[in-house]
Amino acid sequence: MTEAGWIEHRRGDRELLGWMAPEGGGFVVIDLLGRPRTSPLPWLDAEEFLDDLGIGYLAERYRYADRPVRIGEVSTSGVTVIADEYGAASAVGAEPERFHLPFPVPADLLVAE
């Protein structure tokens, strides 16, 4: 569930890119995983940051519980990540392990290096 006061930001095709959370005299950018991405910015800068960020980061490889995972589903109700050892998440017929995480995601969901 999003915090009260978060303002949705969508791109031209109405795809949700994230939120802007009022803080002090500016707005903190919140991504689709519920993570703050900036310190407070002016409104237009926050919008531009979200536009530039897009949603491509959802396709990155992550690590959770010392395992490689990929993002499967994202909503404010929770985030599902799928175990992805050796690309198994996309193998036909595979039934990889799934982890259901709260929103915002916990700090131990990390971008894999």
Rank of each mutant, 00 (worst) to 15 (best):
F103I: 13
G25F: 12
G72Q: 12
G25L: 08
A94Q: 07
E95D: 11
R70P: 02
R10L: 14
G5T: 05
V69H: 00
E85Y: 08
L58K: 01
A65T: 12
V105F: 03
M1E: 13
L16M: 13
L41V: 04
V74H: 02
M20N: 06
S39G: 11
S75G: 12
T38Y: 00
I55Y: 06
A59I: 05
M20Q: 10
W43L: 11
P68C: 02
A21G: 04
P22F: 05
D66I: 08
F99C: 02
A59S: 15
T38V: 06
E48Y: 03
E23F: 07
T2N: 13
L110R: 13
T2R: 15
G54L: 01
A94S: 15
L17Y: 09
E23W: 02
F27G: 02
A112L: 08
L16R: 07
M1K: 14
G12I: 10
F27M: 00
L101D: 11
E23N: 14
G18D: 09
G78Y: 02
R61L: 13
E85P: 02
V74K: 06
Y86K: 00
F27K: 01
P36R: 07
E73R: 08
E113P: 09
A46N: 07
V29I: 09
A89D: 08
R70Y: 02
I7W: 02
A46Q: 02
L101N: 00
G18Q: 06
L109F: 02
L53C: 07
M20D: 00
P102T: 14
A83N: 12
V79H: 07
R14L: 06
W19S: 03
V111H: 13
L50W: 04
G12N: 13
L41P: 01
E8M: 09
G34R: 00
M1P: 10
G25C: 05
Y64C: 06
D84M: 11
I82M: 02
A59R: 15
H100A: 11
G87C: 01
E95Q: 14
E3L: 09
G24Y: 03
V92N: 12
V28W: 06
E3Q: 14
G12Q: 06
G56N: 15
L109E: 02
P36C: 04
E85W: 05
R63G: 04
S39P: 01
R61C: 10
A112K: 04
L58T: 05
L44P: 00
E85V: 10
L110K: 12
W43S: 07
L53K: 11
G12T: 09
L53A: 10
P40Y: 04
E3A: 15
L58Y: 01
F103K: 11
R70H: 11
E48L: 12
D108S: 08
Y57W: 09
G72K: 12
V29Q: 07
S90Y: 03
L41R: 06
F27V: 00
E95W: 08
S75H: 13
L44Y: 10
E47M: 14
V28I: 15
D45A: 14
T2L: 03
